[in-house]
């Protein structure tokens, strides 16, 4: 990242597929010291189809290890694959997301929603939500992300945790069973992570955004002491 003053990106009519599943205790080694593992540890796969964005339509697949920053639930983005080079570059530069480009698909069938990610000819993700049933959008709670990035602060560039606290106005929501057929941990920077006990999968259609950056956190210091507020509002 070259700056922490990126502008907000409105992202209307996005489709978000989220799969949650428990993961082994050994994934605690993936967390920076500033964060605390959730009890029990779990991860989410997020595949989002953005039909409109400042860089045109794209699909983004992310793997997040769910954790705590102080008392707050947060998802540490371990890896991300964007379907266009331009989107991947913007996500890296503006929000510190560890995005690379690849082929990402998001497919809806009557009884399932499927997603894949392919990098350098290798399928690194194949997952699906099975048997979707309508639920209330108010039942879905999305946890904010944090990305580990080299970012400038106080005239120096170094590793920081960058909070990405998007907003969601959910228009439609469904829940189903999560199924992960392929998840290669290494390409996602997720060494010991293996999908364990499935929790739930949701798919929503919503208006969302990528916000201005409000908070960054020191990687080594507990967030209560190591958080810096960059600006008051995510819009200002």
């Amino acid at each position: 990242m070259c700056a922490l003053d990126t502008e907000i990106w409105p992202l209307p009519n996005a489709d978000i597929l989220q799969l949650a599943f428990e993961v082994p205790r050994t994934t605690e080694s993936l967390l920076p010291r500033a964060m605390h593992p959730a009890i029990p540890p779990y991860a989410t796969i997020w595949v989002t189809r953005y039909p409109e964005s400042p860089v045109g339509p794209f699909i983004l697949a992310q793997l997040r290890l769910m954790a705590r920053a102080g008392a707050h639930p947060r998802g540490l983005v371990l890896g991300a694959v964007a379907s266009t080079e331009e989107a991947a570059a913007a996500l890296r530069e503006r929000w510190g997301l560890p995005a690379v480009s690849g082929k990402v698909t998001f497919t809806r069938r009557h009884d399932r929603i499927m997603a894949t990610a392919v990098r350098d000819g290798l399928t690194v993700l194949e997952c699906e939500l099975v048997d979707p049933e309508a639920i209330s959008g108010s039942d879905v709670q999305y946890i904010h992300s944090v990305a580990l990035a080299n970012a400038p602060l106080d005239g120096k560039t170094g590793p920081l945790l960058v909070q990405v606290d998007s907003r969601y106005t959910i228009k439609k929501a469904e829940r189903g069973r999560p199924r992960v057929n392929i998840l290669l941990p290494e390409p996602w920077g997720a060494g010991p992570l293996r999908p364990g006990h499935p929790i739930a999968a949701t798919v929503t259609t919503c208006d969302t955004d990528l916000p201005r950056i409000r908070f960054v956190m020191n990687v080594e210091t507990p967030v209560v002491r190591g958080t810096r507020r960059i600006r008051e509002s995510r819009e200002e």
């Binding site: 949650a20 959730a38 707050h72 639920i135 709670q141 929790i199």
Partner: peptide
């Protein structure tokens, strides 16, 4: 706050409101 509330992980009509853990989380640092 280190525990996982039902609502955080499993969207359900049965756990619609914040519940105890998120309330305590807000009281801790919110």
């Amino acid at each position: 706050s280190q525990l996982i509330s039902a609502r955080e992980a499993f969207p359900s009509r049965s756990y619609q409101s914040l519940g105890l853990l998120p309330q305590l989380r807000r009281q801790a640092t919110g």
